[in-house]
Design a protein around this nucleic acid. Structure first.
Lengths: 110, 110
DNA sequence: TTTAGCAGTATCCTAAAGGATAGTGGTATT
DNA sequence: AATACCACTATCCTTTAGGATACTGCTAAA
């Protein structure tokens, strides 16, 4: 019973790890916390991400309802990515992760 | 400035992701939350982890001061792994991750 | 009309994580 | 004396993430 409970929790932890883990997803979410951005704007912001990877990661985040993808078909093509409400709900979690990470850094290095 | 700050935070997030991320580390920590365990006990607990991987992950967690490795040389060899104080400090963080993960599951599936 | 920017796609390649399987040196059990 | 459990180590192999590079179809500016 206790074990079953633990299994379920592990699944949830795994979900969250998948979302903010990896080389880029956390960075993309952080960048969009700042403000909504277009594809190439994100690309520049993230430095050396390849378009292939950026496309893939954005699709993943969209599937997980963390970001919106809005195509504005004015004369020229423009695609805007922004956090959903659900995506913004990650911010406090990321904050606590950051504070634990900072304590951790001190303990491991100091 | 705001950007520099963000970079630092990303580094911290990355640290934490490394620690509880991956296929096994979260599971190992969760299993040790329950109680201290020996190598083969952990192995059985985790199901289908290979000894090669378990050894590697335990070393990583030990290096990061999250678990203790104690060798008891009675007549027969026995090695006990347990959470350090620092390791136990992860529990509340894991709890908030779990609750966000549960809300997330509902939103994505429902 | 060439050039540049937009939002990607397509193809190839490398490095790292981690599974499969077998073996090691020790002790305790039958 | 043979078998089994302990805590691993060694070797090989597959899968996956993600980088490098080139290209596409479109529009706007020079």
């Amino acid at each position: 019973m206790r074990n079953k409970q633990k299994q379920i929790q592990l699944r949830d932890v795994q979900d969250v790890i998948d979302i903010i883990g990896g080389r880029w997803r956390g960075a993309i979410l952080a960048s969009l916390c700042d403000k909504e951005k277009r594809f190439n704007e994100l690309k520049r912001d993230l430095g050396n991400i390849t378009p292939r990877t950026l496309t893939k990661e954005l699709k993943y985040l969209e599937l997980n309802k963390l970001i919106n993808r809005e195509v504005e078909t004015r004369s020229t093509l423009s695609v805007v990515y922004s956090l959903t409400k659900h995506g913004r709900s990650l911010e406090p979690l990321i904050d606590s992760i950051v504070s634990w990470g900072q304590r951790h850094r001190k303990i491991v290095l100091g």
